[in-house]
């Protein structure tokens, strides 16, 4: 069995973002730290758990982005993935999921993956498109927001549980090859083991070239990034911790809440 996990590296959420009104994109502080998208970490863990049940399974990782992305790919290999592939894209700007999914589908073409896993969305863009689009381009079925998955090699199918609104569930079987976009809560991602860290150190991450003309397609673009609008008054309490605590008690008391 061959599994591909598509991952994205995202800025740590407490890193400072600045919005430059002149630019169509948000800038991160120079010292911003980056991490694997949390949902993708769950996807890597799901792949590792399948391999534990089906020994001999190969797990590949692929990611699109600038040089820094290698660190996230390496982290997945430290968790236990077998091989890493990097599609270099140097710009820190909006790259449409339509283009990303075309790059990944192109990458998959002759590699015969039985199962492709992604996170349900990325923490920064929150679009949730790249996974289902990749599946559609490859002509394979997909399920989004997956809370449980099991492979049945004999039946060549993937059993999935999808989470629906208000916590309801939908169960189904998808014919392999298939793609699942996993939701958090499906598992607890493991920490790298020392032996995997050592192995990952000596494994090369392969850079894959692609047809640059794929980047020219005119899909939707982000024209502007703005501070989110505010829905409530938003009184910010000032002073020392104790002063704020006293002020909060007073405010709640005035509103007969305490």
């Amino acid at each position: 069995m061959k599994i591909l996990v598509c991952i994205k590296q995202v800025p740590d959420q407490e890193s400072r973002i600045t919005v430059d009104p002149e630019k169509a994109w948000a800038g991160y502080a120079e010292n911003a730290s980056y991490w694997i998208n949390r949902y993708d970490e769950h996807a890597v863990e799901a792949a590792l758990q399948i391999r534990e049940k089906l020994p001999g399974t190969m797990i590949d990782i692929v990611s699109i982005g600038p040089a820094r992305v290698k660190a996230a790919i390496r982290r997945c290999m430290e968790m236990g993935a077998d091989q890493g592939f990097h599609l270099r894209y140097e710009h820190e700007d909006y790259l449409s999921p339509s283009i990303k999914s075309r790059l990944i589908a192109e990458f998959c073409r002759d590699r015969d993956y039985d199962l492709i896993l992604t996170g349900v969305m990325s923490e920064d863009m929150m679009s949730g498109q790249t996974g289902p689009m990749t599946a559609a381009r490859l002509g394979i079925p997909s399920a989004a927001s997956v809370m449980k998955l099991e492979v049945d090699l004999e039946k060549q199918c993937l059993y999935v549980e999808r989470e629906l609104d208000a916590g309801h569930r939908c169960f189904m079987e998808l014919k392999l090859p298939a793609l699942a976009a996993v939701q958090s809560g499906i598992n607890r991602p493991r920490y790298p083991s020392l032996s995997n860290v050592m192995r990952a150190k000596s494994t090369e991450i392969e850079e894959i070239s692609y047809d640059d003309s794929l980047l020219d397609a005119k899909y939707e673009t982000v024209e502007k990034v703005l501070e989110a609008g505010s829905d409530r008054a938003g009184l910010t309490l000032q002073g020392s911790t104790a002063e704020k605590a006293a002020a909060l008690w007073q405010l709640l008391h005035e509103r007969s809440l305490i």
Binding site: Q13, I17, M126, K218, V222, E223, V225, L226, E227
Partner: peptide, 20 residues
């Protein structure tokens, strides 16, 4: 027309322009 949506853990809104 611009389409508004939220991103970056809700910190920012983005305005999109249609393409293809």
């Amino acid at each position: 027309i611009r389409y508004r949506r939220s991103g970056f853990h809700g910190k920012l809104d983005m305005l999109y322009k249609e393409g293809k």
